[in-house]
Design a protein around this nucleic acid. Structure first.
Lengths: 160, 160
DNA sequence: ATTTTTGCAAACCTTTTGCATGGAA
DNA sequence: TTCCATGCAAAAGGTTTGCAAAAAT
């Protein structure tokens, strides 16, 4: 994918567009699905792109702050990131099998939240909604395998 | 609060009810709002209850596995736990100011998820939904303070 | 010029693990 | 008596930080 939008977001936020940040943007743009800071460190090493580990962490923080990526927590508790469009409000569905994510928009979620505010008296300032499942591709694969060997697939962990 | 339900859940799950686990149950039951493993370690030390750090981590894992507590991730990325009724499906609203949590039930969330499955083709196996906001008590406090000094309160971070 | 950013390495924090001992069922 | 659970201390991760040098505006 093209890293330019990430760099534009950085520039638009008044942050400096530096060499290392370009590198991180390229790495982020080339991920497909979610990725951890460690993934980027490893891939930078593999591609012989020299960026300090601290810079990767700091850049990911900055990107999350400006909305170019979102920090998510996998059911395992690992911290991961996903690339996303900065603008509108959305959530991610994460495939437990291949890690690919897909954005879904807020939809009627807002109504549900409004009702919860009414019921509890809390003012809800922010929320974190992460959905885990199996994407169509992996599902098809799993089905095929099931037919052959009776493999039942896997269920992800947390269901809060 | 009363730690007995926690111990009963442990027993009902075929785990052993041991001294250290009783201690952890008491600590958990006395938390109000969310708490981290470190909180329990600190409080155990303060109350001069001798439990190994590893045991606290292991017991929290076990409690989460049997549904006596739920592991959540705060907007800051910290791992925390909240006490909860094991049985039915629910979510937590966490007060960003005082940390108190309140359970809300699934409600129409299930419908929303079903629609998302339809739209994306993903099969959703599990989800993690955490809501952050301000509870009625803190909200009142914040308002009072605002009137006096123009304090604007705080917004939590992540809004996925 | 000025201010931000980087890289490195060390520091920090949280969580896990090996293993011998102790305790529940 | 037989496993399961504990404690300790060490190890393992993951993330942050201080600081001098380098780069961006």
């Amino acid at each position: 994918v093209d890293p330019s939008p990430i760099l534009e977001t950085i520039a638009a936020s008044g942050l400096r567009v530096t060499g290392p940040r370009r590198t991180v943007a390229v790495l982020v743009a080339s991920q497909d699905g979610h990725f951890t800071a460690a993934d980027l460190v490893a891939e930078a090493a593999a591609r012989r792109l020299r960026v300090g580990r601290a810079t990767i962490f700091r850049t990911l923080d900055a990107l999350a702050a400006v909305g170019a990526v979102e920090r998510i927590d996998l059911p395992s508790g690992e911290h991961a990131y996903v690339l996303c469009r900065p603008d509108d409000h959305h959530h991610h569905v994460v495939c437990a099998s291949c890690g690919r994510t897909r954005e879904v928009d807020d939809g009627r979620m807002a109504d549900v939240l409004a009702e919860i505010e009414r019921l509890t008296g809390y003012r809800i300032d922010s929320h974190r909604i992460e959905l885990y499942g199996t994407c169509p591709v992996c599902r098809r694969r799993a089905t095929r395998r099931t037919r052959r060997v009776g493999h039942t697939g896997q269920a992800a962990g947390t269901a809060s």
